[in-house]
Amino acid sequence: MRVILQTVSDLEHHFGTREVEIRFEGRCVSDLLAYLKERYDFTLATQERGMLFVNGRGCVDFSLSLNDGDHVAIVPVLAAG
């Protein structure tokens, strides 16, 4: 599976780039997250720390299937005003 991963801010530093093509074995978001844990030691620990989008839609169900070329974005949650 090949997806485009986009990140911002401190997450960008974590991955070393703002946008990177990720190739991994698997079909769904949880497989991608397992790969990110193994390859980058990244854990989407809680929703407070990061939100995940697939093709512009917020994703909380990590069993969601991915397709080749999908855009996955991981961004921090900001709430102060």
């Binding site: 809680t46 407070e48 921090p76 949650v77 102060a80």
Partner: peptide
Amino acid sequence: NAPEKGIE
């Protein structure tokens, strides 16, 4: 399911 607060 929305969190109340963020990384602030």
